[in-house]
Nucleic acid binder design. Sequence first.
RNA 1: GCGCCCGUAGCUCAGCUGGAUAGAGCACGCGCCUUCUAAGCGUGAGGCCGCAGGUUCGAAUCCUGCCGGGCGCGCCA
Length: 590
Amino acid sequence: MPTHDIFAALRARVIDALGTLLPELPPESFARVQVEPPRDPAHGDMATNAALVVGKLAKQPPPKLATALAERLASLPEVESAAPAGPGFVNLRLREDFLRAQLPVVLGTGEHYGDGSAGAGKRIDVEYVSANPTGPMHVGHCRGAVVGDALANLLAKAGYEVTKEYYINDAGAQVLALAWAAYWRYLQALGTSLTEEEFAQSVPGGLQYRGEYLIPVGEALRERFGTTLAEPGGLPAGTSHWLETVRDFTVARMMESIRDDLAALGVAQDVFISEAQLVREGKLEQAEALLAAKGLIYRGVLEPPKGKTPEDWEPREQTLFRATQFGDEVDRPLRKSDGSGTYFANDIANHLHKLERGFAELVHVWGADHGGYVKRMQAAVAALSDRRVPLDVVLAQIVHVVKDGQPVRMSKRAGTYVTLRDLIDEVGRDAVRFTMLTRKADAQMEFDLNKVVEQSRDNPVFYVQYAHARCRSVLRSDNDPSPEVLTAAPLDQLNDPAELALIRRITAWPRTVEAAALAREPHRIAFFLHDLASDFHVLWNRGREDTTLRFIRAEEPEATRARLALVAATATVIRSGLAVMGVTPVEEMR
RNA sequence: GCGCCCGUAGCUCAGCUGGAUAGAGCACGCGCCUUCUAAGCGUGAGGCCGCAGGUUCGAAUCCUGCCGGGCGCGCCA
């Protein structure tokens, strides 16, 4: 597929020119050459650092080389003018014809405009959400879900072959505690005479997960199993009679509810991997054996954590992984003192499973509270893959929900617990998704329930949707001309600075997609769309003061067609961007 | 105490993996908005990019050390 990225196209031109000017240099000396928009638009449409980065190799002062390069570039068909500038930049001003000629490309490509090849078809696994199946999803999970989903879409658009994955933590002590809690609700459904406190005393580690969401699970257990899991009178039976059954039943129910919540958010992962199943299949032992064969496992005693030694700390011999050989600070334990695997060990098994499925790159979206865990996981993946497969971790920071200027508490106690479903019901799925992407993932974020539904300029959701709705409104009022008709429009009618600014913004879409994908930063899409919407609104507003700039002018059918082409291209790019974010474009504001 | 993330306009945040004179929105000042496309528009002011060194043609960006905030810190997930 040919690139639609005009920056990449011009970069190729620059490198051609360099090759002619400096035939003695090998092509790889041009690797650091960049062609990008200058900060100051007064410098033109594009600037290249070519003379600066190859000046030393070429043994030429950059300004001199820049002059020679500019001379060559000036004669390109795409280029209006080229001039050396500053310490050795070459500024390029593109021909307006060339810029306008991108509009038919957009119209012909549709929402696939911006698709790129940076991923080169590489298989990449994006794991996100991965909430414990111990309760309904709450807003804390929501950001990771949206960021991960948008990132996966973004990587697909940039040319990766993407798998969206959910890792179910269904093997640890947490799901046993969940089983106990569900069992209590089951006993209640049977009409037990025990009080909650009496029952709690028989629960190892105490009764957790007391939220009401398990009541229906207790009912369902009674419907399914009758009284067979309890002693007469609704009294608890020995764990061998029910624990595994209740655990599996409850986890399945929780996962159903999580999938429903995710669906309401527009998230549907391709694969769900069960930790318990990996353990049953012996993945943990396989991973351990693999690492042992590489000489990366030993029995040893760790130093106590410096400064803040836990009360009960005592030296113990453990099975350790040589994480320090791969950039971690300390070696990490694989097995607890009772010989069972640590969470880390199970996660190594999970990653072995990923590697076995042949992914070239791995990405995780985690909550920021897992930040301390990144290095050891990267070390493990490096060890398992002999450093061939990179693992990128995107950390999603806390979201503070605010309503009417007051923080909405995230306490797990009933009543103040904001579920994902509550949030979606309150402001809508699209607003949730868009807003979650209006900050860099690793920055803390305030989610203002009032602002997100506000119809004003300072609500980016509204601002972008409004631009699309305006585009659609204009196109509808001219009977939705087809791309073919618009492509044939006399585009040289587009020469107002605001029109050209909008065209320039549109042409930056492919490089925005690529840069955002490589940086694993889906929020950049939201910012791009905001800028694009802004350029469009500016043009629209100009038509208020100067009626000759309106899109539809009965007395100027040719100009009208050209402007409709621009409007249609704008709408196309907005849709292309919203698709990455998983947000539905609207036809009109209601 | 150690590690990770963060520190940019009064506020909320961008800054395109090292580029030229650091940007946007809100708030603030000024001017516009009977009518056409106003769930507003235009314009102005606002900065020691936490501090101090270093790397180089060039640093908000990379390195080191401090200061400040968040998160984490053997047998939790």
